[in-house]
Design a protein around this nucleic acid. Structure first.
Lengths: 219, 219
DNA sequence: TAGATTGTTAATCGATTAACAATC
DNA sequence: TAGATTGTTAATCGATTAACAATC
């Protein structure tokens, strides 16, 4: 995570969530909303939403709230989503396959048109119309096609080594699906997507089963 | 997210990350570590790690740090991971397919042995050996098999309706992969996994391309 | 013993919330 | 106008960090 240039990273992290909620509201036919309505939908306070937005300007009107399309435009500009970002999928396994077929990227600012794998057997195979390339070609392709981001969907054991290749290829943002923390230079963004971390977060709040083990451990 | 019973939710959220890092350290053959080493790996301060752990007890020794296996055991106990949690995959599309084939669940406390879909055409098909069931069977199966958690991998348009079915079936924790905030009763945990939200968080920090549009918008 | 590292306290830092004047 | 809602300030609340006595 970058050191935020004045604006807290936790605020930046909420903007895509606002963007998503506003998009959903717009699709349901609404043209206006308020910090209260948005907050209710997201389970956060209206004050927090207004405060977050106030870091970037004034986007609403007293009495009537926010024009959804206008606020969407502004959020897209803030998040640098006025351009299309080019993203490589690294790893042509089941997860890479699912990512290559996911329909939700292009409408939200991302072009996923490249798949790489280290296995020569996979090279040339098609994934949703995309031809799998060998990872050795990454650097050249990344430069040519101006790829700045990668989704890392390789086995845990390969994650750090492949990350090093991504960095060497000039990739500046990595979403890592492998359950391991990778090291990168300070100018490279890394975020993590590990379902088990999220699931284990939830089990803390769940009622454990009553079972023999529980009884035994009471001694 | 639950209201934490005294212990901040943000602390709970870091425990699975500690658990993961410690597991990786153990696998690399180490038996001991320190808050400094762990912090360096995770990019957080050693003080924060010690403070987080201090909410639950004393797990280390002055001078020598932490026994990795002991700390792993303690963290598993805190996160209710001494039992195996049973988890249903909802949606037999590409993502459901990838989840059904993912090898990383069982070793970390989760048994993924059930796949449901709303499409009758999918019912009976096999996914990594699992027979896809119709969503109408969810409630009965969930009770019988004591399923408490679900991974929601259905289209956005179906997410809320299917969530209602999950809640009705007694599911108490949902990891939602659809890019929409769903409403649930207060006793149900929901967390989100939306790659685009993470990617849009990163684009904020990336240098936008220089392009004609950028020049024009400077006026 | 000397060095290392814990657990904890107090201080600092930062984020959230409540409240309200401004104004649509 | 009356009602609604913004943007912002100040107060509150909470999280992080620095420092260190205790002790392995």
């Amino acid at each position: 995570m970058s050191i935020a240039n004045g604006i807290p990273d936790i605020v930046i992290g909420r903007l895509p969530v606002y963007l998503r909620a506003l998009t959903n509201l717009a699709q349901s036919g609404k043209t206006n909303t308020s910090s209260h309505e948005l907050g209710r939908r997201l389970g956060i306070s209206s004050a927090q939403i207004r405060k977050d937005l106030s870091h970037f300007g004034e986007f609403g009107k007293q009495g009537t709230g926010y024009n959804i399309n206008y606020l969407l435009e502004q959020l897209r500009a803030i998040l640098n989503l006025e351009q299309e970002w080019r993203v490589a999928i690294i790893g042509a396994g089941y997860l890479g396959h699912a990512l290559a077929h996911y329909q939700g990227f292009s409408s939200r600012g991302f072009r996923m048109a490249w798949v790489f794998d280290i296995d020569h057997e996979m090279v040339g195979k098609k994934m949703n119309g995309l031809s799998v390339q060998h990872i050795d070609q990454l650097k050249e392709t990344a430069k040519q096609e101006n790829i700045q981001m990668a989704l890392l969907a390789v086995p845990t054991t390969a994650a750090q080594a492949v990350t090093d290749l991504l960095v060497d290829a000039g990739i500046k943002a990595i979403l890592n699906y492998a359950p391991i923390n990778v090291e990168v230079p300070a100018d490279v963004e890394v975020r993590y997507s590990d379902p088990v971390v999220q699931m284990q977060h939830m089990t803390y709040y769940l009622k454990p089963e009553l079972e023999v083990l529980a009884t035994l451990s009471r001694d």
